[in-house]
Design a protein around this nucleic acid. Structure first.
Lengths: 208, 208
DNA sequence: CCTACCGATCGGTAGG
DNA sequence: CCTACCGATCGGTAGG
C-alpha cells in the first residue's frame, strides 16, 4: 500500500498520518500501523522512537507548511485584497495537498505533551496574527471598510480556509485555487469600502 | 464537581461530554469518567450500558439540537437575508451553548458504530441541504446575487458557524448573537445583489 | 525486521 | 454503588 520508493521512515509517517486522520491518534494501535506497512508491531521501533514522536512529527510538519505558505507573504507590498487572495490560495492549498496531516493537526494536537502542545499553540497564534495584521493593513490602506472588526474579520477568513479540511475531496471538480478564489470573491465583496467589489485578480492570475 | 441536583444519568452525560471534548473519546477511560463523578469504575454500569452508548447519546443530542434550531425555519416566509441571519444566530447559539457536545459532535463521530455513523452523516447532510436551499431561495427571490455558486456559498456559511466551536469562549465579551450578527453582516454584504448591503435587521432584532 | 515477551491498562461483569 | 476480577489489548523492549 505505501509508496515503495520512499524511505521507510517517510512511509511510516505517511501511513500514520492517514490512520491517525481516519481513526484518531489513540484509536490507532501501533500494530495496526505496522500491519498497514506489512511489518510486525515491534519492528516499527527500529525506525521510530515512540508513538508520540510520530504525532509530533506530523503536527510539526503541518505547522511548518502553514508557516512557510503564509509568512513569506508578510513583507510583500501588495494591496490587502490581493494579498488576502494569495494567502487564502496558499492556505487552502496546504490543507488540500495534505488532507491527512491537516486533519491530524486540527484534531489531535490536544494529545501532545506539554512542550509540543505549547509550541503548536504558538504556531496557531501566529497564523491568527498574520490574518489580523492583514485585515488591519487593509483598513489602514482604505482597501477594506473602516467599520470592520479586525478580530471577527480574521475569524471569518480563518473559518473559511480551515474548514475546508472537512469537505475538500482530492480529485473533485474544484482545485484548491478555485475554492480560494470563490471564497475570496464573496468575502472581499463584503470587506471592500467601495461597492465595486471583487478587486484583486480573480481567477486566472499568477501562481503563488 | 458535577451538578448535584441533576439526575445521575445526566451528570454522567455532562461529565462525559466534557472529558470526551477535552481529551477525546478513546483517550478517556471509564475509570477517569467514574473518578470525575466520585465513583468507582464498575459502578458506572449501573447507569449506562457501555462506553459507546455514551458517545451515541452525546452526538445524537447535538444532532437533535441543530435539527430543532434550523428546521423550524424551513417553512418560515421571510426574505432570504433575514432568514439566513436567524439561522446563523440559532446555529451559533447551539454551538456556543453546548461547546462540549458540539466539539464531540465534530471530532468523535467517526468512532461511532456503522448504524449510528450513518444516521449522523444523514443529519449533517440535511443541515447542508438546509443552507443550500436557503441560498437557492435567496437567488430566486433576487435577494442574493445571481452569480453565486450555491454549494460554495453554503459552504462558506457553514464554515463560519461551525468553526466557532474552536474559538468561542463562554463568558467572553461577545454573545453568540453578536457573533452571528457580525458574520451575517459581512457575508450578506458579499451576497447581496444591490450594493446597499446588510439588509435584514442588524443587531437588536427579536429573538429566535 | 521478527519472535517472544513485559507490565499496565483497557472496557466490562459477577456478586453482593 | 463497591470489590474483585475477567480476557484482551495496549505501547514498548530484549535478543537475535
Amino acid at each position: 500500500m505505501p509508496d515503495q520508493t520512499k524511505p521507510r521512515r517517510e512511509q511510516i509517517h505517511d501511513v500514520a498520518s492517514r490512520l491517525f486522520s481516519e481513526r484518531g491518534y489513540h484509536a490507532t494501535s501501533m500494530r495496526e500501523l505496522a500491519g498497514a506497512l506489512g511489518m510486525q508491531g515491534g519492528s516499527l521501533y527500529a525506525h521510530i522512537s515512540g508513538k508520540e514522536d510520530l504525532l509530533i512529527e506530523i503536527v510539526n510538519g503541518a505547522s511548518r507548511q502553514f508557516d512557510e505558505a503564509l509568512f513569506s507573504l508578510r513583507g510583500v507590498d501588495l494591496p490587502a485584497d490581493q494579498k488576502l487572495r494569495k494567502a487564502m490560495r496558499r492556505h487552502i492549498r496546504v490543507v488540500a495537498d495534505n488532507m491527512d496531516s491537516a486533519t491530524v493537526f486540527f484534531h489531535e494536537w490536544k494529545h501532545l505533551s506539554p512542550e509540543a502542545y505549547t509550541r503548536v499553540t504558538g504556531w496557531r497564534d501566529s497564523i491568527d496574527h498574520f490574518y489580523r495584521e492583514l485585515v488591519t493593513q487593509g483598513i489602514e490602506q482604505g482597501t477594506f471598510r473602516a467599520d470592520l472588526d479586525v478580530r471577527m474579520t480574521s475569524n471569518l477568513i480563518l473559518s473559511a480556509v480551515n474548514w475546508t479540511y472537512t469537505w475538500y475531496r482530492t480529485g473533485g471538480p474544484l482545485t484548491p485555487d478555485d475554492i480560494a478564489d470563490q471564497f475570496a470573491d464573496m468575502l472581499l465583496r463584503g470587506f471592500s469600502e467601495t461597492s465595486a467589489a471583487g478587486s484583486g485578480m480573480t481567477g486566472a492570475g499568477a501562481g503563488s
